[in-house]
Design a protein around this nucleic acid. Structure first.
Lengths: 193, 193
DNA sequence: GTCTACCCTTAAACTATCTTAAGCCTATTT
DNA sequence: AAATAGGCTTAAGATAGTTTAAGGGTAGAC
């Protein structure tokens, strides 16, 4: 049962009691997602926090020229959602899509509110989760304003070895904010050193 | 009394009761900061969440060539801290410095823990604060991987009019991830349209 | 099994951004 | 009042990154 993966994950933050586990088991939604299937589409409201049990997903925006820009990947034990749309209940400008066949767990807003109100522990857990996501994002932004493409690529390889093996380079380029052609040049330069 | 500014600020999230206000009044530290004074220096641990009552501050990193890269500004009613260093208690790689003479309020870790343990409301408040900071940062990152310097500058002007008036362009350039000279060119191009 | 769509690479020409250097202006320090 | 440091602009030459186009490889679709 894949909800157990989430319970184990939460346990790494704070141990859960049986009532808390029970609430998760009865309320969390399990979904099997095919490659290229959407978890969230632009113009819809993001209704769930999604936790990836297996597989890999990406969140991206499409610009006025139709180009995709990857904001985030999420593989095993990572969260993915448009948190702005989720809380405001306004239409999202982002897409979330499976890169590999995936199993995800979803928590909708009523469930999240239920968890917060009945088990204050979850407020702490999700505060820490979002703090960690914030730190990660801030580091990435700093990289983007202070480093060139080669440095950003090397740092991506170092920080996400489990992703760089699995992802096509087109996806990595979109994440780094460069074209696939230029990533190819960057890789060639690195190889020649 | 400037702690009242913070109380009013929290009130906009959730009303506080008198015990909660009292705890803030007795525990929050008030500081007057001169222009160019440091609130946090690289190699120190970030020991406080800082709330700007008046004035303006910036957080930046210094790269291997000695260049500064602005990660965040914080003016009236905004928070600034190296949240990674604060929680891990590891040495920060960042600096926080006043751009204008400022008054700030500081919450240290024992106080924050006290607030979380005695008033669960604060866990919710800070979760929402950090969620909002996360959304803002994610939008900025998206801009950085998908837009050129002119688009990023225009969007900065639109989103932070209260800052763009007060900041020297060198600081804005460092925030956008471009050189001051190139920002000058960008501004000229915009003016000529 | 064949086919198609996607992925990766290369190169040439183009555009965006940086570097260096200089000059001017204004606020602050002496 | 003079001196200095910081901030803004301009321009020329250098480097980083994009665009377009083409060719070859490979995995999933039929």
């Amino acid at each position: 049962m894949s909800v157990e993966n989430l319970i184990t994950y939460f346990h790494n933050y704070v141990p859960l009691n049986s009532k808390e586990k029970e609430d998760l088991r009865t309320r969390v939604i399990v979904k099997k997602i095919k490659r290229r299937q959407f978890i969230l589409q632009e113009h819809d409201v993001c209704r769930h926090y999604s936790f990836v049990v297996s597989g890999c997903t990406k969140m991206y925006s499409i610009d006025k020229n139709g180009a995709e820009h990857n904001i985030q990947f999420a593989a095993e034990n990572e969260w993915i959602m448009d948190i702005g749309s989720f809380h405001s209940e306004r239409k999202s400008l982002l897409n979330i899509e499976a890169i590999e066949p995936s199993v995800i767990l979803q928590i909708d807003k009523p469930t999240l509110i239920h968890l917060y109100q009945n088990h204050p522990k979850f407020c702490r857990i999700f505060r820490v989760i979002i703090e960690n996501k914030f730190i990660e994002l801030q580091n990435r932004l700093l990289q983007n304003i202070s480093s060139n493409a080669e440095e950003r690529y090397l740092s991506f390889l170092e920080q996400y070895p489990h992703l760089s093996n699995r992802l096509p380079n087109t996806q990595v380029a979109s994440y780094l904010g460069i074209t696939p052609e230029f990533l190819s040049v960057v890789r060639k330069n690195i190889a020649q050193k």
